Amino acid sequence: MQIDSLIEFTNFKCVSMNKDVVDFEYCSFKSVNRTYQYISTKVKVFKVSLNSIKVNFGLHQQINGYQPFLYNVTFDGCQFMKNTKSNVVAKYFYDFIKDITNLNHTCPINHDVIVDKLSSEAINSRVPKVLPFPTGNYMFQTYWTANDKYHAVTKIYFCLL
């Protein structure tokens, strides 16, 4: 039995917890048609440089609210950018955005960060055709910490068809 699964974005939310350090100029979800959707964001960095960045991401499945599902990973973003092979799971997800972002160097981060048009089509072309995931609604959530303080949260909502 072969299962062909497709990802379809349903929403994208971004929240700055400290607007003196970072804020979102835009955080957009566009649905061109049923098969082509994309998300984009631009994070304004107000502090001169961010030298210590930690990222936590998790995949959540909607079952009576969003419950943790499969991944909950925390890693040092600065060390990861020095050697992207150091964390296989983080690299897998970074590879989705590496060609459409300017976040492609080690710390310090002293400029705005852009992710431009991450499409569901691009994800579907990289995700294996046979997935052991059940169909349903999911959320991919990231927490961004700089200098040991939470500064931003992003949430990508999607359904697996």
Rank of each mutant, 00 (worst) to 15 (best):
L6K: 15
L6H: 14
I7E: 03
I7K: 05
E8Y: 15
N11P: 01
K13H: 08
C14F: 03
V15C: 09
V15S: 08
M17H: 15
D23F: 13
F24C: 03
F29W: 03
F29M: 01
K30C: 04
K30P: 00
S31P: 05
T35R: 15
Y36C: 04
Y38C: 11
I39L: 12
K44R: 15
F46W: 12
L50S: 05
S52L: 07
L59W: 02
L59R: 02
N64T: 00
G65C: 00
Y66C: 09
Q67M: 08
P68A: 01
F69P: 00
Y71G: 00
V73I: 11
T74G: 07
T74N: 09
D76S: 03
G77M: 08
C78H: 07
Q79N: 10
K82A: 10
N83H: 04
I97Y: 02
I100W: 09
T101G: 06
N102Q: 08
T106I: 07
C107L: 04
P108R: 03
N110T: 03
H111P: 10
V113Y: 04
I114T: 10
D116H: 13
D116C: 11
S119A: 09
S120I: 15
L131S: 12
G136W: 03
T142V: 12
W144R: 02
H151L: 12
H151R: 11
I156E: 04
